[in-house]
Design a protein around this nucleic acid. Structure first.
Lengths: 230, 230
DNA sequence: CGTGCGCTTGACTTTTTTCAATAAAGGTGG
DNA sequence: CCACCTTTATTGAAAAAAGTCAAGCGCACG
């Protein structure tokens, strides 16, 4: 049901200059794995890393008793094994296609060559990862606020900071159900809290669009210094 | 009260081969800023980035109305402005020392030179950032479980996976109060839940040491598929 | 030997979840 | 274009979880 033409969003490379993205595309090849097919094993030399295009791939370890311990399941857009490959280390776990899966394969040798001839690609990738890391660090801080209104307020402020438009106008980038899950709660609670915020004139709510009416109020909430009255 | 001799833990470089850390140290110089002194301004060319050694630095934007909006406060070990410097972009915000602060300064030109002559440094830093990113991604997932027992179970499993010892023996790396905060709760709740888990023979608890008795049980909790009986 | 700090426990209050029912929103096919 | 159906969002009332306040325990440290 998803008629994507040529490009897949690959966060690992997203935001790089188009020229550098093209160079990367040149060294990549596509591999298709059948359901149940092993992609690599723990201890294998990391000759290159994969990016899932379609399908699902599980990464797992085998316990002493032979039982498999799934570490993560990767879907479209996600890179697999890149950290080990960058570091020149063997793969630290097994990977296997859970269903028929198409992947992009980036050979380590070509990648290193690219970096060697193109320090600015290295710098840009470092920049990319640094930014993302900072975003995550911030997100982790925000998620560890204890009450949902605080977490929601922090998230709204975060959105308003990053979206470069009118500053106080923002648009949820994910459905409310998913937002609830991201905030560690359920849609019902999110709904109620948005309603409260709206009633108290902290925000103006219209579908997926939100306007911040009282930034200071939200900041107080995000700091846990205030409660949201009923 | 912390008599550290020569080295400060700098996550940005931690885990790099000692040789490469030494090379980095060679291009760095120390700068000391007085309380209130501006380190850089929004729009300044990113001639290099800083790592806080001691003190506190605030990074902020100035709103249209001239009011400062603090984005983050950085303490010892944290890098400032590195993403912009890597990307060759101007600084996106202001930075100012909140108290007398010593910093390490890494000039962009030297850093780029280092990367150019040393692709393996680039690869290792990419590896480092990728690993950390993955850790964070996982942490975010775990933190968005809605109940505290789930989040705690996920955290325990995470610890057991990474600590290479007896697999089922683990030792909290942070004080329980801080763990509570990380899990988005308070020490009292954490304490109670640990007690319950212990009572139900999911874990064996002794101070900061924990032994996992029923891994499957914890996994069920972490997946939200089970409740923790009173 | 007392002080301070981190951790634990108990009784009580508030927030959040659950369950169930309804309302909007979106897409499909007639 | 509209009726229909599926998904997504909202609301209410009762149950469960987590938070607050207050007090006590254990232990390292001066």
């Amino acid at each position: 049901m998803n008629g994507r033409k040529p490009t897949l969003s690959v966060p690992l490379f997203e935001g790089l200059p188009p020229g550098q993205q093209r160079q990367l595309a040149l060294i990549a090849s596509t591999h298709t794995f059948r359901k149940g097919q092993v992609i690599f094993c723990e201890g294998d030399e990391g000759k290159g890393f994969y990016v899932v295009i379609t399908g699902k791939v599980k990464v797992y370890k085998l316990g002493a008793d032979g039982k498999e311990q799934i570490l993560r399941i990767f879907g479209p857009g996600e890179p697999i094994g890149e950290a080990a490959v960058f570091a020149g280390e063997p793969f630290p776990a097994h990977a296997e296609a859970m269903e028929e899966s198409r992947t992009l394969f980036f050979p380590r040798a070509s990648f290193v060559e690219l970096i060697r001839n193109n320090p600015s690609l290295a710098m840009n990738m470092l920049a990319l990862l640094s930014k993302r890391l900072r975003t995550f660090a911030r997100l982790v801080e925000d998620l560890s606020l204890k009450e949902v209104p605080s977490r929601l307020a922090a998230y709204l402020l975060y959105l308003s900071r990053r979206s470069e438009l009118k500053a106080d106008e923002l648009c949820l980038d994910i459905p409310k159900g998913e937002l609830a899950s991201l905030l560690g709660t359920i849609p019902e609670t999110l709904s109620r809290i948005l309603a409260k915020m709206s009633k108290q004139r902290l925000i103006h709510l219209k579908g997926r669009h939100i306007r911040i009416l009282d930034r200071a109020g939200l900041e107080q909430l995000a700091k846990g210094g205030k409660r949201l009255a009923p």
